[in-house]
Nucleic acid binder design. Structure first.
Length: 851
RNA sequence: GCCCAAGUGGCGGAAUUGGUAUACGCGGUGGACUUAAAAUCCGCUUCCUUUACCGGAUUAUGGGUUCGAGUCCCAUCUUGGGCACCA
C-alpha cells in the first residue's frame, strides 16, 4: 500500500466507528489513563434544518469547527458531549407537501436520513445515540410542556393586535423575523393584520437580558446587536394638561366612539396596570384600559431628555393615538381625518423611506408645566404608536427631528441648553450636553445633572416620573401553519382558553389530506375535524389551531441533549447539572432571534427551579459564510453552488474537505471557495501518508528533529486553544515540509499523526494504527525548543543590516552580541563611526544600533 | 445619517506583548523523473534596479508618538456589517 486512497481509508474507519458506537458521552465523569478526573466539555453546533438539498459547504464549515474542537478535547482525555439534531418544523416541508401531496412527516424523514448519511460521511465525532428531532412526538411533547410552564406563570398570553403578516407564507411573523419590512423566509413585503395571537412575555426579562450581555464570552458584534435590539432608554414620562378648549362636547362624544383604530390601542395600554410590572412597562400583555388618557385631561409623553422641558414648544402624537379624535376641533377635522387615512395607507416601508416630515395640527393645545405656555398639539407619522406613549414633547432647539418639523410648520424654537464654546457642532439644533438656560431655577445646571432634578420636580408636582422604555416587544409565537408544534390549548364554549393537562401531552399533529391553509387565517389543522374536539374535565372544547414558532422548539434543545430519551421530564436533573450549560456553541446565524430566545428561556426555567444556571451558552463562536469563488453568495439560481459530497467523492475525501475548510481563513470571517485550494490540502495529506507508510526511517535517532517536533506540538496546541485553525494547519504543513527535508523518525510521524487528528481524523487513525500508537494528544518540552545556535537581527537606525550567529548561552550577554555585530562589514558601512546608543531585545533576538 | 469591523503580493491569507513584513497554500515559472503526459520530487516567485551581490521602496492615503509602527494616536478615503424618524 503506497498510495494515499482517502475513499478506502475513510470507508474503513467510518464503518469501525459505526460498529463500535464510538464518541459516546458518558454521563458519569471518568478518569484519564493516568488517573486524573476527566473534565466535562459540552459542544454543539446550531442544529440544521434538514433541507431536501442536503449538506452544503457552509454546514461543513460549521460542523467541522465543532468537530475539530471535539476531537482535540477528546484527545486531551476530556469527557466530551457532542450531540446532533434536526430542526425539522418549518415552511419548506409544508410548502413541499402542498405542492406534491407528500406529507411533511415523510419528507422530513427522508431528509433526515440523507443528512445523517452525509454527516457520517464527514467523519464527525458525534454521539449518535443522542440524536434529536424537533418534530418527533417524543420531543414536541416537552416543547408543549415548556409552553405550559410559561402559560402557568402568565408568560404565555393571548392578545388581539395588529401583527406582521406575510401574504405569501400566510402566517404572522415575530418582529425578529421581519427584516427591512420583508419576510425573512420568502422576502415578500409584510403587511399588518389584526389577529388574536399568542405571545411569550420576553419583555419581563428585558433588564436581565441586557445587563448580563456584557459579561458573555460571545462575539462583540452579537452582543451589540442584542443590546440594540432590546434598546433600553432611560427617561421620564410626563403628563401635559390640556388647555381649555371651546370644543363642542357633542362632537367629542361622536369622535370617541369612532372606530378608526380598532383594537390596537397600545399607547393607552403602555402605561402601568396590575398585570404588568412598572419596571418593564413595555409588555404587550392585555390589560385594563388606562385611565390616563381618554377620561382625563392629560397627554402622557415619554422623553429621554426631561432636562429640556422648558424648551418643549409643542406636542406631537402618533396619528393612531387614541386621543386624537377627542383633540380634533371642528375646523381641523377634515384635515386630520385625511392625514390619518393617508398614514394608514402607507406601508411601513414607505414610512421608512420617506423621511420628509409631514403632519397636521389638531386644533387643541396643552400647557407646558414648566413654563405655563400654550403648546399646540400636532399629529405626525414620525411619532410611532408602538414606542413609549405614542406621543412626544417636541424640543425643536435640541432634537433634530423636532427641529425639522418646527422649521417646516413654522413652530417656535426655544433654546434651553447652552452649547459649550469648544463644541464643533455648528448646526442650529444642538443635541448635546451643556448648561441649562431659559429654564427658571434650573438655569446654570449641567444638562446631565438636570435630568434627575427635573424628574424630582415633576414627581413633586405629581405630573411625571422616571421611566425606562424598551424597543423590544413581546415574542409573537402563533403561526397559522400545519407543520409546527401544536399549541397545547383548547377553548370552551365561551372562547376562553384552557391548558391541555400535562398527562394528555403530546397534542399530536393530526394527519390531513390537504395542507393548504384556508383564507380565514387558520392552519390546515382546522381541517382535522375529529382532532379539533377534546374533552377537558368533562367539558367539550375545541383545540387551538395555531402552531408554535419554530424558534420555540429550538429554545430548549441544548438541554434535551443531556438526556434525549427521558420520558419523565424535558431534561434530567442530574444530567443537566453535570453537562450544562453548553461550553461552546457554534453557528453563523440567528444573532438576535434564537440567541436571545434561548437566553430568555434559560432565565425563566432557572427562576422555576429547573435549571441551575442563568445563561445557556458560555462561549459562542460565530462562523463566517463560505461564498462562491466569485465572492458572491452561493445560490441555486446563480448556479454557483459547490456540493461538498461531490468534492469528497471526486477523490479528495472528507479529510481533505475538512482540512481545507479550516485552512481557508479565520473561522469567523467570510471566505470564498477555491476549488484549486483543496488540491493543496490533499497534497499535504498525501505527504503525511507517505511519511508514515513509505518514508519513515527508524534507523535515525529520534532526537535530531526534537526542536522542530516540539515546536510543532506547541504551535498546533496553542493555535487550537485560540481557535486559530488556519494557522494550525499551516504549522502542520511546515512541520511536514521540514520532515521531508530532514527525514522522519517513528516519533516524528507519531506526533504528526496525533496532531492531524482533529482535522483529518480518518488519516490520523490509519497512521496511528500502522504505527501502533494511541491518539493521546502530545505535550511539548520548552527545553527542547532551544536551539544551540541563535541568529540575532542587527539593525542600524531601525533598518535591517545584518544577521549574526551567537551561541545560545550568549543570548542575555549584550556585550558579546554587540561585539559581533560591530565586526560586521555591512553594519560598519551604515554606522559611519561610533554608535550613539544601542537597544538590545533578547526576547526578540534583535539589536538596534542608533547612529 | 448613526454605531461597529476591516483594508497587507496576481489570489486566500500570516505576523499571538510595538521588535526580521509577506509564514502556509493557490496561481505562475524553471528543473528532475518519463517516449510523452499526469502524478510526484527539488528550486525560484512583493515591487523597482541588478547577470549576481549590494541597494531602494512597500502593509488604503496623509500626519504623529517611538531607538523601532501592519500593530498605538489623529485626520481622510474605500469596503463590509448592524441600526435607521425608538423621542
Amino acid at each position: 500500500m503506497d498510495k494515499y486512497d482517502p475513499i478506502q481509508i475513510e470507508k474503513k474507519w467510518q464503518k469501525k466507528w459505526e460498529e463500535e458506537g464510538a464518541f459516546k458521552a458518558d454521563d458519569n465523569a471518568q478518569k484519564t489513563a493516568d488517573g486524573r478526573p476527566k473534565a466535562k466539555m459540552f459542544l454543539a453546533e446550531m442544529f440544521p434544518y434538514p433541507s431536501g438539498a442536503g449538506l452544503h459547504v457552509g454546514h461543513v464549515r460549521n460542523f467541522t469547527i465543532v468537530d475539530v474542537l471535539t476531537r482535540f478535547y477528546r484527545q486531551q482525555e476530556m469527557n466530551v458531549l457532542r450531540p446532533f439534531g434536526y430542526d425539522t418544523f418549518g415552511l419548506p416541508a409544508e410548502n413541499y407537501a402542498i405542492k406534491t401531496g407528500i406529507s411533511p412527516q415523510s419528507a422530513t424523514e427522508t431528509n433526515i436520513k440523507n443528512f445523517r448519511k452525509q454527516a457520517k460521511r464527514l467523519g464527525l465525532a458525534i454521539d449518535w445515540s443522542r440524536e434529536i428531532n424537533t418534530s418527533s412526538p417524543e420531543y414536541y411533547r416537552w416543547t408543549q410542556w415548556c409552553f405550559l410552564q410559561l402559560y402557568k406563570k402568565g408568560l404565555a398570553y393571548r392578545k388581539e393586535s395588529e401583527q406582521w403578516w406575510c401574504p405569501v407564507d400566510q402566517t404572522v411573523l415575530a418582529n425578529e423575523q421581519v427584516e427591512g419590512g420583508k419576510c425573512w423566509r420568502c422576502g415578500h413585503e409584510v403587511e399588518k393584520k389584526k389577529m388574536k395571537q399568542w405571545f411569550f412575555k420576553i419583555t419581563d426579562y428585558a433588564d436581565e437580558l441586557l445587563d448580563n450581555t456584557d459579561a458573555l464570552d460571545w462575539p462583540e458584534k452579537i452582543k451589540t446587536m442584542q443590546k440594540n435590539w432590546i434598546g433600553r432608554s432611560e427617561g421620564a414620562e410626563i403628563d401635559f394638561e390640556l388647555a381649555n378648549q371651546a370644543n363642542s362636547s357633542k362632537d367629542n362624544k361622536r369622535w370617541q366612539s369612532a372606530t378608526l383604530f380598532e383594537g390596537d390601542t397600545e399607547p393607552g395600554k403602555a402605561s402601568s396596570s396590575a398585570e404588568t410590572p412598572v419596571a418593564t412597562g413595555v409588555s404587550d400583555a392585555p390589560r385594563e384600559e388606562s385611565s390616563s388618557c381618554q377620561q382625563t385631561r392629560h397627554i402622557r409623553v415619554f422623553t429621554t431628555r426631561p432636562d429640556t422641558i422648558f424648551g418643549a414648544t409643542f406636542l406631537v402624537l402618533a396619528p393612531e393615538h387614541p386621543m386624537v379624535p377627542a383633540l380634533t376641533t371642528e375646523d381641523t377635522r377634515a384635515e386630520v381625518e385625511a392625514y390619518i387615512k393617508a398614514t394608514q395607507k402607507k406601508s411601513d416601508i414607505e414610512r421608512q423611506e420617506n423621511k420628509e416630515k409631514t403632519g397636521v395640527f389638531t386644533g387643541s393645545y396643552a400647557i407646558n408645566p414648566a413654563t405655563g405656555e400654550k403648546m399646540p398639539i400636532w399629529i405626525a407619522d414620525y411619532v410611532l404608536i408602538g414606542y413609549g406613549e405614542g406621543a412626544i414633547m417636541a424640543v425643536p432647539a435640541h432634537d433634530e427631528r423636532d427641529y425639522e418639523f418646527a422649521k417646516k410648520f413654522d413652530l417656535s424654537i426655544k433654546v434651553v441648553i447652552e452649547k459649550p464654546e469648544d463644541s464643533e457642532d455648528d448646526s442650529e439644533c444642538y443635541g448635546g450636553e451643556g448648561k441649562l438656560v431659559n429654564s427658571g431655577h434650573f438655569n446654570g445646571i449641567n444638562s446631565y445633572d438636570a435630568r434627575e432634578q427635573v424628574v424630582a420636580w415633576l414627581e413633586e408636582q405629581g405630573i411625571g416620573k422616571q421611566k425606562v422604555t424598551y424597543k423590544m416587544r413581546d415574542w409573537l409565537i402563533s403561526r397559522q401553519r400545519y407543520w409546527g408544534c401544536p399549541i397545547p390549548i383548547a377553548y370552551d364554549k365561551n372562547g376562553e382558553p384552557h391548558p391541555i393537562p400535562e398527562d394528555q401531552l403530546p397534542v399530536m399533529i393530526p394527519e390531513v389530506k390537504d395542507y393548504q391553509p384556508d383564507n380565514s387565517g387558520r392552519s390546515a389543522l382546522a381541517k382535522a375535524k375529529d382532532w379539533l374536539k377534546v374533552t377537558i374535565d368533562g367539558e367539550e372544547m375545541t383545540r387551538e389551531t395555531d402552531t408554535l414558532d419554530g424558534y420555540a422548539c429550538s429554545s430548549w434543545y441544548l438541554w434535551r441533549y443531556t438526556s434525549p430519551h427521558d420520558d419523565k421530564a424535558a431534561w434530567d436533573e442530574d444530567a443537566i447539572k453535570y453537562w450544562a450549560p453548553t461550553d461552546i456553541y457554534v453557528g453563523g446565524d440567528h444573532a438576535v432571534a434564537h440567541l436571545l430566545y434561548i437566553r430568555f428561556w434559560c432565565k425563566f426555567f432557572a427562576d422555576e427551579g429547573y435549571l441551575p444556571f442563568r445563561e445557556p451558552v458560555k462561549t459562542l463562536l460565530y462562523n463566517g459564510y463560505i461564498n462562491a469563488p466569485d465572492g458572491r453568495k452561493m445560490s441555486k439560481s446563480k448556479g454557483n453552488v459547490i456540493d461538498p459530497l461531490d468534492i469528497i467523492e471526486s477523490g479528495y475525501g472528507a479529510d481533505s474537505l475538512r482540512t481545507y475548510e479550516m485552512f481557508i481563513g479565520p473561522y469567523d470571517q467570510d471566505a470564498a471557495w477555491d476549488t484549486k485550494g483543496i488540491g493543496g490540502v490533499y497534497r499535504f495529506l498525501n505527504r503525511c501518508y507517505q511519511l508514515c507508510f513509505n518514508l519513515a526511517d527508524d534507523e535515525k535517532n529520534s532526537s535530531h528533529n526534537s526542536a522542530i517536533r516540539n515546536k510543532a506540538i506547541k504551535k498546533v496546541t496553542e493555535d487550537l486553544h485560540r481557535r486559530s485553525f488556519n494557522t494550525a494547519v499551516a504549522a502542520l504543513m511546515e512541520y511536514v515540509n521540514e520532515l521531508y527535508k530532514s527525514g522522519a523518525t517513528h516519533e516524528d510521524v507519531t506526533v504528526l499523526a496525533k496532531l492531524i487528528g482533529p482535522f483529518a481524523p480518518h488519516l490520523s487513525a490509519e497512521m496511528l494504527e500502522h504505527l501502533g500508537e494511541n491518539d493521546i494528544w502530545p505535550t511539548w518540552d520548552e527545553k527542547e525548543l532551544v536551539e544551540d545556535e541563535l541568529e540575532i537581527v542587527v539593525q542600524v537606525n531601525g533598518k535591517l543590516r545584518a544577521k549574526v550567529k551567537i551561541n545560545a548561552g550568549d543570548l542575555e550577554n549584550q556585550a558579546v552580541v554587540e561585539g559581533l555585530a560591530l565586526q560586521d562589514e555591512n553594519v560598519q558601512k551604515f554606522l559611519n563611526g561610533e554608535p550613539k546608543k544601542t537597544i538590545y531585545v533578547p526576547r526578540a533576538k534583535l539589536l538596534n544600533i542608533v547612529a
